[in-house]
Amino acid sequence: MKTEKLEKQTLTWFVFSANVIVGAMARQMGLHHGLDAFNGYVAFMVCTLMLTAIYINLQELFKRTLSPLFETLFMKFPNYGKKGKVEIEDKETTEEESLTKETDTNPPSNMDYAQIRLSAMKAKEQAEQEKLATVLTYTRESFAPYMKEEDLNILCKYICLFHADKDIPKVVRTVKVDSAIRTIDLMHFGWNIGYQFSKSGIQIATFIKRIFAEALKESEISTLKSKLRLEGKCTIKIDTTLKQSA
Score class of each variant (00 low, 15 high):
L66N: 08
M111D: 06
K82T: 05
I54H: 03
Y80C: 02
S109G: 03
K76N: 09
D90K: 04
L61F: 15
D90E: 07
L73E: 06
E96L: 13
T94Q: 12
Q115V: 08
E95V: 02
G84T: 03
D90L: 03
N106I: 09
A123H: 08
P107M: 01
E92K: 06
P68C: 09
T103I: 08
Y113R: 06
S98T: 10
T103Q: 11
K122T: 12
R64A: 15
E89T: 01
E95Q: 02
L73I: 11
T103G: 08
D104Q: 13
I88W: 00
I88K: 01
Y55V: 06
N57Y: 14
L73V: 11
E97Y: 04
E96W: 09
T65M: 13
T93G: 04
Q115F: 07
F62A: 15
T72G: 13
N79I: 09
A123Q: 11
T100H: 14
P107S: 01
F74Y: 12
A114C: 09
K83M: 04
N110Y: 00
Q115G: 04
E125H: 07
N57T: 14
T94C: 10
L73S: 05
S119Y: 07
M75P: 00
F74K: 10
E92Q: 06
N106E: 11
K91F: 05
E95P: 00
L58D: 14
N106Y: 14
D104E: 14
E89N: 01
M75I: 10
L73D: 04
E96M: 13
E89R: 02
K83A: 05
Y55T: 10
P107R: 01
N106D: 09
T72R: 15
K122M: 10
I54P: 00
T94K: 13
E92V: 03
L118A: 14
N106M: 12
L99M: 04
E97A: 07
L118R: 11
E71W: 12
